[in-house]
Design a protein around this nucleic acid. Structure first.
Lengths: 133, 133
DNA sequence: GTAGGCCCTGACGCGGACGTCAGGGCAAGG
DNA sequence: CCTTGCCCTGACGTCCGCGTCAGGGCCTAC
């Protein structure tokens, strides 16, 4: 199949596939017209990439999975490098979630405090100047 | 004080202050040499911006706070527009945290599955080819 | 013949918040 | 006089994953 069909089957665009090829992630054969040609195996690789991307993995992080599939494994994540990516991502997610929860708490506290302060000196009396109250 | 000193006091760089000025967020007076001049009030505004930025707020989101301070309020977050930004950010954080937790769960499940699959067909026997097992 | 429709390459745009470099000025200190 | 150190403007680079032209080719259908 050609690039348009593969892109459609994977729910993406030709531009994206060319980009992956430029990154060395999904190389393509060419037909006698110079058009890129793909097979079902490429679709499998692409689906692996898209699934990971949709979960927030960076493009480079998908490489071990793709290479694992290309090495002949039925699943892209059984290789040690893929497992390492999973684990690293889990740690990143935990760190990020923790950080965000901290921020959330801080913002919530600020909101409560600011609401109280605003209520203590309600609009529009305190709109202008600091001595109005 | 001049740009270098203000930047140092706020723990940032002159480039950042020029950027804020270009965005209309922190305009500066000029001395007779054309150098930017700031006072303690500008430091207060800048600290407000940096605090919010450090919590993940976008630059534009800090604008209501800065304008609130500039309007004469002792705190930048007592104005309605600032409160609205807080509330919107809280909602964003909740949505993001929820999404990330979902992803975390998915990744964790995949990791467990992949580890089991890898153990069922351990290295290096299954390293090459699919028929080795 | 020509109008689609698909493909090609190359290259710029985007968003956000700056970093960094080029080229130049002005003032104080040795 | 010359260096050092601060400042200025303008403009390009960064990161990421593409989107979006611009300009051109080939095949098919009408």
């Amino acid at each position: 199949m050609r690039i348009g069909e593969l892109a459609a089957r994977a729910g993406t665009t030709p531009r994206t596939l060319r980009y992956y090829e430029a990154r060395g992630l999904l190389p393509a054969r060419r037909d006698d017209h110079g058009h890129r040609t793909y097979d079902a195996r490429d679709l499998r690789l692409l689906e692996q990439i898209r699934t990971l991307r949709d979960s927030g993995f960076g493009l480079e992080e998908t490489r071990p999975f793709v290479e694992c599939l290309r090495a002949g494994h039925p699943e892209g994540d059984v290789c040690p490098a893929s497992l390492a990516v999973y684990r690293r991502k889990l740690a990143e997610l935990d760190a990020l979630i923790g950080e965000l929860r901290g921020v959330r708490g801080t913002v919530a506290a600020q909101l409560v405090r600011a609401e109280a302060a605003a209520a203590e000196c309600p609009e529009p009396r305190c709109e202008l100047g600091g001595e109005t109250w």
